[in-house]
Design a protein around this nucleic acid. Structure first.
Length: 791
RNA sequence: GCCGCGGUGGCGGAAUUGGUAGACGCACGGGACUCAAAAUCCCGCGAUCGUAAGGUCAUGAGAGUUCGAUUCUCUCCCGCGGCACCA
């Protein structure tokens, strides 16, 4: 038997595909076929190179897009580099090289690795977010946000990571710590560029109804945006007013005190509160939220608020359990119907008034008494609006996007700060605004970007008045370039626009987007928002629709052997280079698809790879080894019919399995089919091509080689997709199962054409001894499956 | 606490408009080939009782619906992920 020359085959076809541009996506024209746009999250090219979990998503979508391409669709599937960002800059600092050079080196390594796996990417559409030709449009888009009033500079408390020396968006803070390095985040007051994503909060929730995302993705996004419907209520405090937000306006009569956040303006200036406010400011976010729920607070002496519902005077407290950045930073406390208020009231001995009875009827509520609880919320809002002391409203947990980073390796924010004219956009014809070439990238403790010290770059003339001005020195977060890259794939070399409307109309929306769950509240949310904005201002044509991704799926993580997470520190990371070198790309790909359900975490298993390698060796032997293609007549007629049934079942299963991402069962089925061919002594000629075509999305190199070996013309990857004949899915006989009182008592192989009466008669005969002479009460027949006898 | 996903052999996992539980692969055991080993091929492989034929039990636990439940309903337990003093 000839050994399968894995590496020769793979190198040969990779070179051939590259030369013939086999996977090139056609630009839309008169006769262009129907499109299919498959998308995977483009990688950040780290210094460590790919690890084995990385390509899982790419292999899956590669199989899906290959199948689409074989079916005749015009497929867009491409790749690129999300190459700006903190890790690249830290890498450069550590290795004393320029971020530009380090990034290029890493990109080259990633490209080599991806090419060795044999993806069907259209490499002519490769994207690099750090390429000035690309980020020219990232900057242009930022200026559109600015010109439409959605990008603004504001002094706010931001999340500051003292280790990375960088400001973080809320989405980048996990449990009060920096998402990247785990350092507890501090609060710092800073002027930052912000983008008003909150203006899209409602649409970001509502439009989820129009797309097909995994349920957990939708619910995580909804959760993150955090919509609450309730009311603002105004409490008079002397000559001033304190406005609170509540989701329970119905319990207004039970409000026995107010609580303000320590940052609330009304709290300032009260001598007795000073120490408390000072202490609260010093605490980190985790300290403030992790205090085992033991409530603290201080009463503001000598001030009372008037409850607008009953005119009662109630005290005002400050406490850090009320958050400054949510609602109005002030609440009405209803201890009878809110756990937190109850804990606070009990600790400080404040009155508790129940306003909803056990029977869900309003009590102790003046004009609301007797109203059913379910109606009370709406009635109270109407009353508040009528009396002009409040209004119904909706709030969101989502906050505006902190868009500034005080680091070197990012897109410079193209704004010029002029004392006279304010923030002035860099004129479009001066884009891209590139980074100055410098020697020092170290971030500063002062929280200023290293760009600030490059005076020659910073000092410019104001484009509006011509006076002395300074460039903005903050850069954009790495989420900027990745928020629109899928649009650029449609038209990657355009220097007149981010992409031409014609091409966008043809390719958008993305038909399938696969990526990690960890990006659900970051990249996925940002890019949906970004896209909606571009769509609103007409930079993306109306025809593309309001959502960028029709379908969103997520892959499970690959764990280390044994079930732990793969990590550099544990030394259990599997490098795809090693796997490809030892087994070849096809084995690597097939194993990834076979190892477990695509959407679930699965441990890497070296033994499992061996099994897949054996399978491909056996496929090889069947075609080119001793068993070769079965000549006519070697396989008898009955056997051929059996194989035919199995073949058509396999075509159906693989066709549907790929579309539904049930890759592991597709591979099982292909194994079953091969086992049957082996047992029969070869492959009937009528099934040869189809079998190779079914293998092609999973093992493209081997399939192409076999395609050539059997003398077929062209590439298997453009050869069509096999179809199944529904009439041939049914075997000529089946095993009839007979149950008595729900237990299996007999089996018999019967002809598929068996009638109901025949089946029942046969069944009763088979299980006679179990009936013990009794007459069956009921006999149930399930066609093609079983007979159930009840006695 | 809230939301989402999941729990099936020694292991990864199949099977759901309710109809043969454990497909396929791994590991393991036995055999063939070999001086021997590797590779390859063949057979076996949930537990339990039985020489066997065959029986009984078994899909996290318990109940329910049904001729029949891994699949549907209810109650509970455990694991993973997300959010969390959000008023």
């Amino acid at each position: 038997m000839s050994k399968r020359p894995v590496h020769e085959i793979e190198a040969k076809w990779q070179a051939e595909w590259e030369k013939s541009k086999l996977y090139q996506a056609a630009d839309p024209g008169k006769d262009t076929a129907e499109k299919f746009y498959g998308l995977v999250e483009f990688p950040f090219p780290s210094g460590e190179g790919l690890h084995v979990g990385h390509p899982r998503s790419y292999i899956a979508v590669d199989a899906m897009t290959r199948k689409q391409r074989m079916s005749g669709k015009n497929v867009l599937y491409s790749i690129g580099w999300d190459a700006f960002g903190l890790p690249a800059e830290n890498y450069a600092i550590k290795h004393k090289v320029k971020p530009q050079d380090a990034t290029q080196k890493n990109i080259n390594n990633f490209r080599r690795q991806l090419k060795s796996i044999g993806f069907g990417f259209d490499w002519d559409r490769e994207i690099d977010t750090t390429d000035p030709k690309y980020f020219k449009w990232t900057q242009w888009q930022f200026l559109q946000f600015f010109k439409h009033g959605l990008a603004y500079k504001a002094k706010t408390n931001i999340n500051w990571c003292p280790k990375d020396k960088i400001g973080l968006a809320n989405e980048e803070v996990v449990a009060g710590c920096c998402e990247r390095c785990g350092t507890p985040v501090e609060k710092r007051e800073k002027e930052q560029w912000m983008i008003a994503i909150t203006q899209y909060a409602e649409r970001l929730i509502a439009d989820l109804d129009t797309v097909d995302y995994l349920p957990q993705i939708k619910s995580q996004q909804i959760n993150w945006i955090g919509k609450s419907e309730g009311a603002y209520i105004d409490f008079a405090v002397g000559h001033e007013t304190v406005r609170v937000f509540t989701t329970r306006p119905d319990t207004l009569f039970g409000a026995t005190y107010l609580v303000l956040a320590p940052e609330h303006p009304l709290a300032a200036g009260h001598e007795e509160a000073k120490t408390y406010i000072e202490a609260a400011r010093k605490k980190t976010e985790i300290e403030r939220t992790n205090e085992d729920k033991e409530k603290t607070g201080v009463r503001l002496e000598g001030v009372m608020a008037i409850n607008p519902a009953n005119g009662q005077e109630i005290p005002i407290w400050i406490s850090d359990y009320v958050l400054a950045h949510y609602g109005t930073g002030a609440i009405m406390a209803v201890p009878a119907h809110d756990e937190r208020d109850e804990a606070f009231a009990k600790k400080f001995d404040l009155p508790i008034v129940q306003v909803i009875s056990e029977e869900q009827i309003m009590i102790n509520s003046g004009f609301m008494d007797g109203v059913p609880a379910w109606k009370a919320k709406d009635e109270m809002i109407s009353w508040l609006e009528e009396k002009k002391c409040g209004e119904g409203t909706t709030t969101y947990k989502l906050r505006d996007w902190v868009f500034s980073r005080q680091r070197y390796w990012g897109e410079p924010i193209p704004i010029i700060n002029c004392k006279k004219c304010g923030h002035v956009p860099v004129p479009d014809d001066q884009l891209p605004l590139t980074l100055p070439d410098v020697d020092v990238y170290e971030p500063t403790d002062s929280g200023e970007s290293p760009l600030a010290s490059m005076r020659a770059w910073v000092e410019v003339k104001c484009p509006t008045c011509g006076g002395d001005a300074e460039r903005e020195t903050d850069t954009m977060p790495n989420w900027a370039g990745s928020s629109w890259y899928f649009l650029r794939y449609c038209d990657p070399h355009n220097d007149q626009a981010l992409a031409s409307p014609e091409k966008l109309k043809y390719w958008m929306p993305v038909d399938l987007y696969n990526g990690g769950m960890e990006h659900t509240t970051l990249h996925l949310l940002y890019s949906r928002f970004w896209y909606k904005f571009l769509w609103d201002i007409g930079a993306v044509p109306q025809e593309c629709g309001s959502e960028p991704y029709k379908v969103r799926r997520s892959h499970g993580l690959i764990m280390a052997q044994g079930g732990e997470k793969m990590s550099k520190s544990k030394g259990n990371v599997v490098n795809p280079d090693d796997v490809v070198n030892e087994y070849g790309a096809d084995v690597f790909r097939l194993y990834q698809m076979f190892m477990g359900p695509f959407d679930q975490a699965v441990p890497w298993d070296t033994n499992g790879i061996e099994g897949v390698r054996k399978y491909l060796d056996r496929v090889w032997v069947l075609f080119v080894g001793a068993q070769f293609i079965a000549p006519q007549g070697v396989i008898n007629h009955a056997r051929t019919l059996e194989l035919e049934t199995l073949y058509h079942q396999t075509v159906k299963k693989v066709t549907e399995g790929i579309d539904h991402m049930h890759f592991n069962t597709c591979v099982s089925q292909l194994m079953i089919l091969l086992n049957a061919f082996s047992d029969a002594g070869g492959i009937p000629e009528t099934m040869q091509k189809g079998f190779i075509q079914l293998l092609a999305p999973f093992v493209p190199h081997l399939a192409e080689e076999l395609w050539q070996k059997i003398g077929a013309t062209g590439s298997v990857h453009r050869s069509g997709w096999p179809s199944f004949d529904s009439s041939k899915l049914q075997a000529s006989s089946f095993t009839l199962v007979v149950q008595v009182n729900g237990k299996i008592r007999g089996k018999a192989v019967v002809d598929s054409t068996v009638s109901e009466d025949e089946a029942k008669a046969k069944a009763l005969e088979l299980v006679e001894k179990w009936l013990e002479g009794k007459t069956p009460k009921q006999v149930i027949y399930v066609k093609g499956k079983l007979v159930s006898v009840v006695v």
